[in-house]
Computed example of a mutant assay.
Amino acid sequence: MTSFNAQIIQEFRGNGGHVETAGFGDKLVLLRTIGARTGEERVTPTMALRDEDSWLVYASKAGAPDNPAWYYNLVENPDITIETPQGDVEVTASELHGDERDAAWDQVVAVASGFADYQVKAGDRVIPVFRLTPR
């Protein structure tokens, strides 16, 4: 885990889910995924937007040409726990496609315009979006 992620996780847990670093505020969740190759639990902070009773998360990796490791973890093991500002929630992740994915992408760009830059940097990679639905 990078020191930046460790700092964000510590701040998230120490402030009831509120993270001032990088201006995240209350728009983060901690994904507790199971490693697709290792089977070990991984904790990753990620931008999340509420969408009715679910959360939308974006596998941007800051516009890298490849998907973040947690993307593969969710594909392989979609039943996970997330830490939210309101507490832990057991969810099932489903990847969005087509118009549903595009609408969810537009939501994050409206809130955090830097995500539009991530898509440009990512080139041909369409940044995946997942819906996390409580189980």
Results as ranks from 00 to 15, higher is better:
residue 56 L to W: 03
residue 51 D to Y: 08
residue 115 F to H: 00
residue 114 G to Y: 00
residue 39 G to Q: 06
residue 87 G to F: 03
residue 41 E to I: 14
residue 20 E to T: 12
residue 1 M to A: 14
residue 133 T to S: 11
residue 61 K to A: 14
residue 124 D to A: 10
residue 103 A to T: 13
residue 37 R to V: 04
residue 87 G to P: 05
residue 97 H to I: 05
residue 58 Y to C: 08
residue 11 E to M: 13
residue 33 T to H: 06
residue 92 T to Q: 13
residue 130 F to S: 03
residue 60 S to D: 02
residue 116 A to G: 14
residue 134 P to D: 03
residue 67 N to H: 13
residue 36 A to H: 12
residue 74 L to A: 04
residue 4 F to Q: 13
residue 72 Y to K: 07
residue 111 V to E: 11
residue 83 E to D: 12
residue 62 A to I: 06
residue 113 S to Q: 10
residue 117 D to I: 06
residue 1 M to W: 12
residue 59 A to T: 01
residue 63 G to F: 03
residue 3 S to N: 15
residue 116 A to F: 08
residue 129 V to E: 04
residue 50 R to C: 10
residue 101 R to K: 05
residue 76 E to S: 15
residue 35 G to S: 09
residue 108 V to G: 05
residue 69 A to K: 08
residue 106 D to G: 11
residue 85 P to M: 04
residue 38 T to H: 06
residue 69 A to C: 09
residue 27 K to E: 11
residue 135 R to S: 13
residue 43 V to N: 08
residue 11 E to Y: 06
residue 70 W to T: 01
residue 69 A to L: 09
residue 128 P to A: 07
residue 13 R to A: 09
residue 56 L to T: 03
residue 46 T to R: 08
residue 82 I to N: 00
residue 84 T to L: 08
residue 77 N to P: 10
residue 68 P to A: 10
